[in-house]
Design a protein around this nucleic acid. Sequence first.
DNA 1: TAGATTGTTAATCGATTAACAATC
DNA 2: TAGATTGTTAATCGATTAACAATC
Lengths: 208, 208
Amino acid sequence: MEIRSFTIQTLERLPYYLHYMESRETEDVSSRDLANALGLNEVQVRKDLAAVSSKAGRPRRGFERKPLIRDIREALGFGRMDEAVIVGVGHLGTALINYKGFRELGLRIVAGFDLQVEDEIWVNETPVFSSDRLKNLIPRLNVKMAILTVNSENAQAVCDELVAAGIRAIWNFSQVMLNVPDNVIVRNENMAASLAVLSEYLSTGNNK
Amino acid sequence: MEIRSFTIQTLERLPYYLHYMESRETEDVSSRDLANALGLNEVQVRKDLAAVSSKAGRPRRGFERKPLIRDIREALGFGRMDEAVIVGVGHLGTALINYKGFRELGLRIVAGFDLQVEDEIWVNETPVFSSDRLKNLIPRLNVKMAILTVNSENAQAVCDELVAAGIRAIWNFSQVMLNVPDNVIVRNENMAASLAVLSEYLSTGNNK
DNA sequence: TAGATTGTTAATCGATTAACAATC
DNA sequence: TAGATTGTTAATCGATTAACAATC
């Protein structure tokens, strides 16, 4: 198993580097270019690039743009296609099923599950099943990632079922901090907090 | 102007505290209860609560649950209703317009803008206008928050227009690090990075 | 050679965690 | 009083930033 040599903070900046570099046409890109364009510290950018790049940067020139783009896409996993199921096909869940952007990021949603569904229904090209069938279907589909968009009341219970069914990575859109075993990873998408930061800024003008 | 006395990290944990406390029925809640339930450090929880609570916690008992719930909802801005426009009404934009959960969080999306729209169209109860009309309409609506769901190529240009139209807070779903003046706040919702964390974990098993 | 840019080592900063005193 | 829990002060940890040497 390959071990990641960079932090989550670095990973979070990579998409921004990638987009900037894809918008350039020069042979090379320097950390200073990137730092200036993105409003980041130059050393931070350089360290991020060094952690991800397969070729060292060159004095006086910077990093070769194209190989670096490949390395970043690789680090972000854009090459490999992941399959995921989504649990909770309400407004947000339906939205995410329909969201085309995921395909570009290498994610295919292969099935949905929802308590309200009795027989199978379809949301565009994605089948949605009753949550009862989760236990059976997930192992058969051999899917390891789940997107959790159920309401807070059910989140932990559904999470437990997912783990029992073999899910190893959960993208959690609920407002519950999930309890999972050590070999399962959870990534929280905390919309309430994001919104609160913006809302509070508007009402107080405090930018810190 | 009131100054926020807690960090963004604290703010990000508040929704989880809130949900846990709302699921209880006891008179009081202690930091240890919360820490155990959520898998957090006890001192961290205590400091978070102290920063947000209007009443001090009491030795031997903890914090009074109901007043604390009120304080957290207040800190998260659930009481006040914010209005926002959304720019870029593709799949993700439409999804967010339809997402009912925002209402509970105190957000109302009052209008959308999209380059593809000529005359006014409606997505459920939300009018969507041509992006040309952004300049005029945003000041007239007196809206200060915008949700940005345009593609990367247009993100900075649209951002500039928004700022010119008086927007002060931007919820950025694009993969561009936006350049804004000091008096405008941006919150990045970085789905590519979130997905990359999960995807990488699945492919390498590295949980650090 | 001079200068731009990298890469590395050390300093800073802020958040988390530990230790412990205060209080009911 | 003893014990549970708070609140505070100090230590730790990790990420960011600064200083600077190496290199083309």
